[in-house]
Design a protein around this nucleic acid. Structure first.
Lengths: 203, 203
DNA sequence: TTGAATATTCAGTACCTATTGAAACTTTAG
DNA sequence: CTAAAGTTTCAATAGGTACTGAATATTCAA
């Protein structure tokens, strides 16, 4: 971690060189709260299907509400440059953080989306696409392969009937779930979206 | 895997000893369909927060709709006794498969719940308890720690205000989500439950 | 109580994912 | 163009989770 010292030496001797927008040292009380949040968010990355480091970086950007650069992230979370770089890129790919250029600055900054609803919509959309859609496709394929014209008189066999029944149950469930996701994901640009408003009113 | 042969030799010489309720060999067409389903379900275990083997065992029990014993599972999925035992127990703990005794039989059998809605309710309830509740608790704790009477005049500081704002946004989101889960989980004993019916009507 | 059938546990290992850190690459100011 | 700043890549490896299979425990019929 020589980079840190180097950078701090530089700022000490010439504070206009490589100035970070927000110095990392922060009021200890605030910092504790932020760290608690970051830790928990990291542990719970599983909910998102995201690994710990990615979750922590996101948590840091979200909770501070500031654009931070790679070095800020490295310093605050004690992770390597490579890790920070890859994870930041992955978060950008997900679309829940964004790159930010500052006029006249070389360094790139990253900031989190501020709207939680939008963030979760994005995540939901992506996971639906990656995880639910393929399963639904497989199930439909399975049902097709068990259609009577493919299996002939075996269609009456007990084992076939049971399996087809189970496939039907699963298909119904996933189709309905899919539709709901679609809605949630579709009009979710900001704030409580339609799905949620409908539910809150009705319950 | 000597166990398999031993067991099969036994059945060959004395078919009343250790009879498995359903012989594993199954019509190849049906078997292919079941295997496709099992494979995909295993790959997608992540959705559930469950590992591949557990997901595959569950898929097998679900798709066949039959009570199977540990050896059936081992043979069909080519996994070790230890693995089968641990995974079956974990699935029982989740509550999505059940142990079954057959009168006059020593061996234990396992069968999957048949109602997909009930299964997912159970899973949702468990994940909410394990994953969402602790995060919400942490967030509330963070908000408490940033209350003006704890941090005094710092409450007006820009950094504090931003962090508090972010915490509030997250809290709103998670509280609402939590309520919806609660409903889904509460009255979900069977079939399309209230939450889903409300949504389907409204959308 | 005994022993055969069955079930569970767990130390060791295989396998896989995440992380590091140094080298290679890119960009821009001068 | 060159040097300095910044970014990305990737081989090596650390670290963690899942799996095996033999040892141990449990159950039940006789």
């Amino acid at each position: 971690m020589t980079t840190v010292e180097e950078r701090e030496n530089l700022s000490a001797t010439d504070s206009t060189l490589n100035p970070r927008i927000v110095p990392l040292p922060v009021d200890p009380k605030l910092r504790k709260v932020q760290d608690d949040f970051i830790r928990k968010w990291g542990e719970m990355g599983a909910i998102w299907g995201i690994n710990r480091t990615m979750a922590e970086i996101h948590a840091l950007l979200y909770i501070t509400g500031l654009p931070l650069c790679t070095d800020d992230v490295m310093d605050r979370l004690h992770i390597s440059r490579g890790n920070a770089s890859m994870s930041l890129r992955a978060l950008c790919d997900w679309g829940i953080i964004r790159r930010m250029h500052r006029r006249g600055e070389r360094r790139e900054y990253f900031e989190s989306l501020g709207d939680v609803w939008e963030m979760f919509s994005i995540i939901a959309a992506e996971r639906k696409r990656r995880e639910m859609d393929p399963v639904l496709e497989t199930i439909k394929q399975c049902i097709r392969e068990l259609e009577p014209d493919r299996i002939g008189k075996l269609a009456e066999d007990e084992a076939f009937r049971r399996t087809r029944q189970r496939l039907d149950g699963m298909e119904e469930f996933m189709s309905v779930t899919n539709k709901i996701f679609q809605q949630f994901v579709g009009n979710a640009k900001s704030g409580l979206n339609k799905v949620v408003r409908v539910l809150l009113k009705a319950l």
